[in-house]
C-alpha cells in the first residue's frame, strides 16, 4: 500500500518538474502560464494524494481532500486573473502567434 502511495507521489513530482520546465522554457507569458497552471495542478494533486495514502490516519486524508478541492478551484481563477491583467496592460504575444481576436475586439470598442 505504501509503495503505491510513493509511486503516485513520484508521478506528481515529475509533473511538477515538467510544469517548472515549461515555465522556464516557453517563449512568452501566456504559454508559460499554460504549462504552469495545468502541470502544477495535477502534479500537486497527485503528490498530496500519494502522501495521504502513505500516512494511514483518517484525519490526514480529509485534510488532503480539502486541499485538493481548494487547489482545483483557486488555481485556474488566479491564472485567469493574471492573464487578464497581462493582456490589459499589453503584454505582447510571441512572434509565432497566429491571431489575436481580443486585441481586435477591444480596439473596436475604443473607437465607438
Amino acid at each position: 500500500m505504501e509503495l503505491i502511495g510513493s509511486l503516485i507521489t513520484l508521478f506528481g513530482a515529475i509533473f511538477l518538474f515538467l510544469g517548472a520546465l515549461g515555465i522556464f522554457r516557453m517563449p512568452d507569458l501566456y504559454n508559460r502560464m499554460q504549462a504552469g497552471t495545468k502541470a502544477t495542478t495535477l502534479g500537486s494533486i497527485l503528490f498530496l494524494f500519494g502522501l495521504a495514502i502513505g500516512c494511514y490516519r483518517g484525519l490526514c486524508f480529509w485534510r488532503v481532500l480539502i486541499l485538493i478541492i481548494f487547489i482545483i478551484f483557486t488555481n485556474p481563477i488566479s491564472s485567469h486573473a493574471l492573464a487578464r491583467a497581462a493582456h490589459h496592460i499589453g503584454v505582447k504575444l510571441t512572434e509565432r502567434s497566429v491571431k489575436d481576436d481580443l486585441k481586435k475586439d477591444s480596439q473596436k470598442g475604443d473607437r465607438k
Binding site: A20, I23, R32, G36, G43, S44, L51, S79, I89
Partner: peptide, 26 residues
C-alpha cells in the same frame, strides 16, 4: 524580463511550496 512574468513564476512557486509543506508534515 518584467513584472508579469515574475508573477507567473511566483504563482507556480506557491503551488509547489504547498506540496513541499505537505511532505514535511509526512
Amino acid at each position: 524580463p518584467d513584472l508579469p512574468n515574475r508573477t507567473v513564476a511566483l504563482d507556480a512557486m506557491t503551488i509547489i511550496t504547498i506540496s513541499v509543506i505537505g511532505f514535511i508534515g509526512f
